[in-house]
Design a protein around this nucleic acid. Structure first.
Length: 556
DNA sequence: ACCTAAACTGAGACCACATTATGAT
DNA sequence: CGATCATAATGTGGTCTCAGTTTAG
């Protein structure tokens, strides 16, 4: 990690906290709003005016918020530095079981920050950060000065002549160099400055890839989809490194701001990963072959879009495929479940009218899960469940119910299986086909995700053969007779599964929101314990013994 | 439509200390 | 091998703080 990356990470990670700490007279809200103001100004200065680019900034903020959260967990501002290191050393194992995943994820983040947290930060960093922050305030917002009364004035003054005033006492030449770097950086690197390290690299890659596109391509196929993809989920290229180097040229990030979470979530047993990788490879090659022709028409509006980029989207970003399908109000799901032997042309011709905007025009709806998209994703999820359930059901029927009749036991076990299979899925957040692939080998071997991906990828395609081959070839083994193509007979089971799903969701909600007390005795003691402003305080012993004796007895 | 400021929200930190876990003897 | 002791670690709840989000002007 370079110094610049460190600075960029730290810059946004600690900006608010440090600023709040050092510029205390300025109220937090004011500072926050100032930050927003500065950010907007900065964005506009770099020509990031369109809302999509604002969404980029917003995502960067989001990405940074995680780092902020990391720093925030330790008690505020300056102390957080020390505590971060402490937590690094301790392993930060003090959280409750409910928050452990976050802690784990955070520990990774902290590890990432450890590199620069140790040597220099201790003293100089916050000053540096606030210094840079104020430097920008001075550049962009005169308003900051208006806030400076005498008390804050010192702060402001220090940042005015930051090159001479040892505000941080140990501001090092490097910070000045960083300022120089800041001022000299171009559009890309200015984003780097405000991005966390790994994400910054991704963003660099993203922005640097844009020149490969024409300006039109930039305007149309701008950052939004790619960055959104990168920020949302690490895809197969993330955990299947062998997945064609060429995809990396897309600039789609493998390590997104949420990669830490998703990677963690996408760490199923190796075999499953291997399956996913294999399938992905397999399908990737197929899809590339298949789609190489079909997307030429689609991307005609976007000269900058390479076919591979779309292929990547289609193959890897199956989460977005959900969004795509859902955004395209075309009830993909229950619906065009292709009946065996019937070509699926209609399915994709139906897509064709709708999905192209997703690829060809970027001015459409954002792939980000908007409130509008939320309800639309639900059907997608249902489809996944449906497919998955069908697959499961087939397996299950083969094992327990060869006659295809649902006994209660069978239903119960089916419910059990569903819950246990869905648990990891839903606990990762919204069920996506990506998670489907990682979660269930049977799923990842075919059905859902491939369906989604292919549907997504071939949305623009007019080649019916491609569609057919794609659909059939992608899910050969999962295309079990009635399981894959639910008929009337399976509707009943579908209802049962939906009920099971509802039950599961109910359980999950309860599980998430109720606090588990492991030791009631401790709870009672804690309730009886005296507090001051919520904090435990020493119990005042009312016994007549002298305090020193009491203290001695206390400390042994 | 855009910007700013304030309100709202969710999560984490803090505290003392009884209880529990672990290691040494 | 079990018992005892010492030490470290854990967990408990109410309140506060903070950063992010939403809302109002």
């Amino acid at each position: 990690m370079s110094t610049q990356d460190s600075v960029s990470t730290v810059y946004k990670c600690m900006l608010r906290g440090a600023a709040d700490y050092l510029v205390k007279p300025i109220r937090r809200n004011e500072l926050r709003n100032l930050w927003q103001h500065v950010w907007r100004k900065q964005s506009s200065n770099f020509g990031i005016n369109d809302p999509q680019d604002e969404s980029v900034a917003q995502r960067q903020l989001e990405a940074t918020s995680e780092n902020n959260a990391a720093s925030n967990r330790s008690n505020g501002q300056m102390a957080c530095i020390q505590r971060n290191t402490e937590q690094i050393e301790k392993g930060s194992d003090e959280q409750s079981s409910c928050t452990k995943p976050d802690v784990e994820a955070e520990s990774v983040r902290v590890e990432n920050m450890q590199e620069f947290s140790q040597p220099k930060w201790g003293k100089s960093f916050p000053s540096d950060i606030i210094l840079q922050n104020k430097y920008e305030f001075l550049n962009f917002g005169q308003k900051f000065l208006t806030h400076g009364s005498e008390a804050e004035g010192s702060e402001v003054d220090t940042c005015k002549d930051d090159n001479t005033t040892p505000l941080g006492k140990d501001i090092r030449p490097e910070s000045q160099n960083r300022d120089a770097v800041m001022t000299n950086e171009d559009f890309d690197n200015n984003y780097v400055l405000v991005n966390s390290s790994s994400e910054a690299i991704d963003l660099i890659g993203s922005f640097h890839n844009y020149p490969n596109c024409s300006s039109e391509g930039i305007s149309k196929f701008d950052s939004l989809p790619q960055l959104d993809l990168s920020l949302r989920r690490s895809h197969f290229s993330g955990f299947c490194n062998s997945y064609t180097e060429e995809r990396r040229t897309l600039g789609t990030s493998n390590a997104s701001a949420f990669t830490r979470y998703t990677n963690r979530a996408l760490q199923p047993p190796q075999t499953k990963i291997a399956n996913a990788c294999n399938n992905q490879k397999e399908y990737g090659t197929n899809s590339e072959q298949m789609l190489s022709n079909t997307f030429t028409t689609c991307s005609s509006d976007n000269p900058g879009i390479t076919q591979r980029s779309i292929i990547s989207l289609a193959a890897g970003h199956s989460k977005e495929s959900e969004v795509a399908t859902s955004c395209s109000q075309q009830r993909v799901f229950p619906v065009p479940i292709p009946v065996k032997g019937i070509r699926v042309n209609n399915l994709y011709t139906g897509f064709g009218s709708v999905l192209p905007p997703m690829f060809c025009t970027q001015s459409g709806s954002s792939p980000t899960p908007s409130p509008n998209s939320v309800p639309q994703q639900e059907p997608s999820f249902q489809m996944n469940i449906l497919y998955q359930s069908s697959l499961e059901n087939n397996n299950f029927e083969q094992q327990y119910d060869p006659d295809g009749q649902n006994t209660n036991d069978a239903a119960n076990q089916n419910v059990y299986k569903q819950e246990h299979k869905l648990d990891p899925l839903e606990d990762r957040g919204h069920v996506s086909s990506a998670t489907d692939q990682s979660a269930s080998s049977s799923i990842c071997n075919g059905g859902v995700s491939h369906h989604n991906s292919i549907g997504y990828g071939s949305a623009c395609g007019s080649n019916s053969n491609v569609d057919h081959v794609a659909f059939v070839g992608a899910a050969p083994e999962s295309k079990n007779e009635e399981g894959f193509y639910p008929q009337n007979g399976s509707s009943h089971r579908s209802i049962q599964r939906e009920a099971a799903l509802a039950k599961f969701r109910l359980k999950r909600k309860e599980r998430c929101y109720e606090k588990k007390v492991r030791y009631e005795s401790r709870k009672k003691l804690a309730e009886q314990r005296p507090r001051v402003k919520g904090q435990f305080v020493r119990q005042v012993h009312m016994d007549p013994s002298p305090p020193e004796i009491d203290g001695n007895s206390y400390y042994g």
